[in-house]
């Protein structure tokens, strides 16, 4: 019974596909001629969503099915955004395991990485705004040496004449307590440092473990990817992620056509739809072609470093060899491949 159903599903997709092929030439011409037409994208969307509805998890598709899914998306997005959009489906490179290192002493908190990422990865620009990187401004705190000698409480009635040290009754802080919405005139500021956080591409990712439909999985190059077309939007992964790296498309994403980055990857920066989760992929549409991620390239102070963890000559391995390195929330035992380092 299930097998029959599968066949049926496949049959429908193929017949749809044939229909596209016939209509392909016509619609391509239409797209080129009337890119501004309002009707074309909607039609394209309606035609493809039906076929997309029945498609399988990307990891389980045959090469043929992958090609079809990609062709479908390319055609639709080209029409929708009025320019040639390519959807890459290239698999992980062999003998590559991506790692990332960030020099926390150098980061000046300018947030350029945040916006480079938005431009590269086609995130929703507003309502709701989606950013994959969050930079936290942190300050030196109030657990001071001076306070150590002070008694608490100050009232002689309660102190029993014994000092307890001024910090004993204070609350412990959070490692990551700071300001997310800082907006000074200039950065870096005195007495502040900045802590950018994004997906750590954990080796033992809690988000992958909790996914009930395995729409999110770890690719051989260590990148945790999402098949946006298979995601059911249950947000278990968002609850499980210790780094708050995942974002949700609460509504239809707002991506202006002129700002859309047409060079996309199926598992990476292709335009998303409403109701699915997305996250940083170390720009796999770039990195699987050998190029640095957008955030690495844009960092004005060179605090971000990227490379192949399997290659001892890579920048990341050299940093692991030579610098003081720490990992965020290492006790979560997630084995993040995103390292913070200091000189």
């Amino acid at each position: 019974m299930p097998a029959e159903e599968k066949k049926e599903v496949k049959g429908t997709t193929i017949s749809r596909r044939q229909f596209f092929k016939q209509a392909g030439a016509v619609s391509a011409a239409v797209a080129a001629a009337a890119a501004s037409s309002v009707i074309a994208p909607e039609e394209a969307e309606a035609r493809t969503t039906f076929a997309e509805f029945f498609q399988n998890n990307y990891r389980l598709m045959t090469d043929e099915e992958k090609k079809e899914a990609i062709a479908r998306l390319e055609q639709r997005h080209s029409e929708e955004y009025g320019k040639k959009v390519t959807v890459d489906g290239s698999p992980a490179m062999k003998d590559v395991l991506f790692g990332y290192a960030l020099n926390i002493q150098k980061c000046i908190g300018c947030r350029r990485c945040v916006y480079a990422c938005v431009k590269e990865n086609n995130q929703s620009r507003h309502d709701t705004e989606i950013q994959w990187i969050r930079v936290i401004r942190m300050e030196k705190g109030n657990f001071t040496v001076d306070d150590m000698d002070k008694g608490y409480p100050n009232s002689p009635n309660e102190s029993f004449g014994i000092q307890v040290g001024g910090n004993a009754y204070k609350n412990a802080g959070v490692a990551l307590e700071g300001q997310h919405y800082y907006q000074p005139e200039r950065v870096p500021e005195k007495d502040a440092f900045y802590f950018p956080v994004q997906c750590m591409q954990c080796e033992k990712p809690p988000c992958v473990k909790v996914c009930p439909v395995r729409t999110t999985y770890r690719d051989p190059d260590g990148i945790v990817v999402i098949d946006y077309n298979w995601c059911i939007g249950c947000r278990m992964c968002m609850g499980a992620c210790p780094y708050w790296a995942r974002r949700f498309n609460w509504g239809d994403p707002n991506l202006p056509a002129e700002e859309m980055n047409p060079k996309t990857h199926y598992l990476g920066n292709r335009p998303r739809m409403r109701g699915v989760v997305e996250k940083c992929t170390f720009c796999l549409q770039r990195t699987r072609k050998g190029r640095y991620p957008a955030c690495v390239e844009v960092c004005p102070v060179g605090a971000r470093k990227f490379g192949n963890l399997l290659d001892p000559e890579s920048e990341v391995r050299k940093i692991l060899d030579r610098k003081k390195v720490f990992r965020l929330k290492a006790d979560m035992n997630t084995y993040p491949k995103f390292f913070y380092f200091i000189d």
Binding site: L60, T215, C231, R235, R274
Partner: peptide
């Protein structure tokens, strides 16, 4: 759920039912 239309992805056999890994 963000995509209730994709509820069938959760159905065993025709979809992927990540049992026993996912508590869901």
């Amino acid at each position: 759920m963000g995509r209730p239309d994709r509820l069938w992805h959760l159905a065993p056999i025709i979809g992927i039912f990540s049992w026993p890994n996912s508590i869901l």
